Measured scan of single mutants.
Amino acid sequence: TFELKGKVGKVVKIAEDHYLVEVEGDKWIAYSDEKLSLGDRVMVVDVDGLKLKVKRIP
């Protein structure tokens, strides 16, 4: 999972307290300090167990 840091993915689902992002064909639970929208491109900035911390990228 640490090899996911720096990888780019996209938001595929928005849940009440987390996001579902697809990175390299796999779906992961993710969270972010900013509000994300469906389809946003994101970069993995940290890995916390099986959850990814992501940030939006242009």
Results as ranks from 00 to 15, higher is better:
Val54Phe: 02
Lys55Gln: 14
Lys10Met: 12
Asp48Pro: 02
Gly39Ser: 11
Ala15Ile: 11
Val8Leu: 06
Asp46Cys: 03
Asp46Asn: 03
Asp26Ser: 14
Lys10Arg: 13
Glu16Gln: 14
Asp26Pro: 14
Leu20Val: 09
Lys53Ala: 04
Asp46Phe: 03
Asp48Thr: 14
Val54His: 00
Lys53Asp: 06
Val54Met: 03
Leu20Ala: 07
Lys13Cys: 07
Asp40Asn: 07
Val47Gly: 04
Leu52Thr: 02
Trp28Arg: 03
Asp48His: 11
Arg56Gly: 06
Leu20His: 10
Lys51His: 06
Ala30Gly: 07
Val54Trp: 02
Lys10Ser: 09
Leu38Gln: 08
Pro58Ile: 05
Glu24Phe: 03
Leu36Tyr: 13
Lys7Ser: 05
Asp48Phe: 13
Glu3Leu: 03
Leu52His: 01
Arg41Val: 07
Ile14Leu: 13
Leu36Phe: 07
Lys5Met: 15
Lys5Cys: 15
Ser32Asp: 11
Phe2Ile: 15
Glu24His: 02
Ala30Ile: 01
Leu50Thr: 12
Asp17Tyr: 11
Asp17Val: 07
Phe2Asn: 15
Gly39Cys: 08
Gly49Met: 14
Glu34Lys: 10
Arg41Asn: 08
Ala30Asn: 01
Glu34Asp: 07
Lys13Ala: 06
Ile57Thr: 14
Ser37Pro: 09
Val21Pro: 00
Val12Asn: 11
Tyr31Met: 08
Ala15Arg: 07
Val44Asn: 01
Ala30Leu: 01
Asp26Arg: 04
Gly25Asn: 08
Asp40His: 05
Glu22Arg: 06
Thr1Met: 15
Val12Cys: 06
Thr1Pro: 15
Lys51Tyr: 12
Glu3Tyr: 04
Leu36Glu: 02
Ile29Lys: 14
Gly9Leu: 02
Phe2Leu: 15
Leu38Glu: 07
Glu24Tyr: 02
Met43Cys: 11
Gly25Ile: 08
Gly6His: 01
Lys10Gln: 11
Val47Gln: 07
Val11Phe: 02
Ile29Met: 08
Gly9Pro: 00
Glu16Pro: 05
Ser32Thr: 06
Val21Phe: 04
Leu4Asn: 01
Asp40Pro: 01
Asp26Cys: 11
Met43Ile: 14
Lys51Phe: 10
Asp40Phe: 14
Val21Ser: 03
Lys5His: 11
Asp33Arg: 13
Gly49Ser: 12
Lys10Thr: 13
Val54Lys: 00
Val54Ser: 01
His18Asn: 09
Arg56Met: 09
